[in-house]
Design a protein around this nucleic acid. Structure first.
Lengths: 194, 194
DNA sequence: ACCTGAACACCGTTCAAGT
DNA sequence: ACCTGAACACCGTTCAAGT
């Protein structure tokens, strides 16, 4: 802040988001504060408000940025259930890469950004190809999203009450996979395709 | 705080927790701060630290208090799967009564208090009676807990990206129920009982 | 439009006292 | 043991300036 009022700092929305992302990786979600972000960018705290509406909007943007890493399966190949399985697994893995973000993600009830919407659309298309009508597809959509993010949240936290602390990550991933297969089996059961 | 140093205010851990619970019901989790709690109890902020180790511990205690409202099915009647279904539904309903608590619950990865442990034990017993071996039972336990809390978190938040805002609560509850049945079906499938 | 300075109204927590 | 006073090191956000 060795700048007089009126001097530019060369801030951009992109630079702000990038710094936020770094801060998140370093100190978790607790370390991501407006003031810490300003410090890192060598800028007065209120300077951020020229590029971001507020902290809530900033967090939303960061979440959506992370969601861009999810691998979307090709729509034209394989069967839709396999595609759904792959998509949810990729989402799970991406979320595990940002543990502190997950509770936040869940708290604001899923990202509302462009990437999140796109993932939702892909899922709906796959469910449609799996033979589900629109209402049933939305039902299944909610269940799958909730299950995946919820599981990621639990995986990234401290152990629940299981007395074996060792192979947590792999164990949890297996559990996630088991439950996911059960859900997909239920979703695509004959009674659902009616 | 019209009290000199050394005068007692008649604070108790119970009174503190009760006030915290009220504050939570009134203003949500954002309204539940140490200082607001002290204000409500007409006490200096630091007086709370004589009855509670800190904010984290206070939140844990509040969460476990809420969990006491969950209806535990009788262990000796009905079939275990029905019992599990009822238990998860009751948990879901109780969590819906405290929307702002849910993300917190999820963030600290489930309550670690006495009530939470008891619920876990009941679930394990039911899973055992359903024919699952210990390892499989733990697997199923994680899946069911995650699913229930995760769904509660999503239900209590703003709508996800569905364009129909009306019958949210009932719709979500139906979705929860559908997914829960799928999971229970998967959990108790013949391949799991081996 | 973009940035600074200063301020407002908060936080959680600690430390040294008082009885 | 229980409580106050005062302080520390923070928050997010706003408002009035400066160029």
């Amino acid at each position: 802040m060795d700048r007089r009022p009126g001097q530019r700092a060369g801030l951009t929305r992109e630079r702000v988001l990038a710094a936020a992302h770094e801060l998140l990786g370093a100190g978790g979600v607790d370390g991501l504060t407006m003031r810490a972000l300003a410090r890192r960018l060598e800028v007065a705290p209120n300077a951020l408000y020229s590029h971001v509406p507020g902290k809530t909007a900033l967090l939303d943007a960061v979440i959506d940025e992370v969601l861009a890493q999810v691998e979307v399966p090709a729509m034209d190949v394989a069967d839709p259930v396999t595609g759904l399985h792959a998509l949810m697994c990729s989402t799970y893995d991406v979320l595990l890469g940002h543990p502190d973000l997950v509770p936040l993600y869940l708290a604001r009830n899923g990202a509302r950004g462009a990437n999140a919407r796109h993932l939702g659309d892909v899922m709906l298309a796959l469910l449609d190809r799996a033979g589900l009508r629109e209402a049933r597809a939305r039902e299944a959509l909610s269940v799958l999203i909730v299950y995946t993010i919820g599981f990621a949240a639990f995986t990234t936290g401290p152990p629940i009450d299981v007395p074996d602390p060792e192979p947590r990550a792999e164990q949890m991933r297996e559990n996630f996979d088991s439950g996911l297969r059960w859900l997909l089996a239920g979703i695509t059961a004959p009674s659902m395709r009616a």
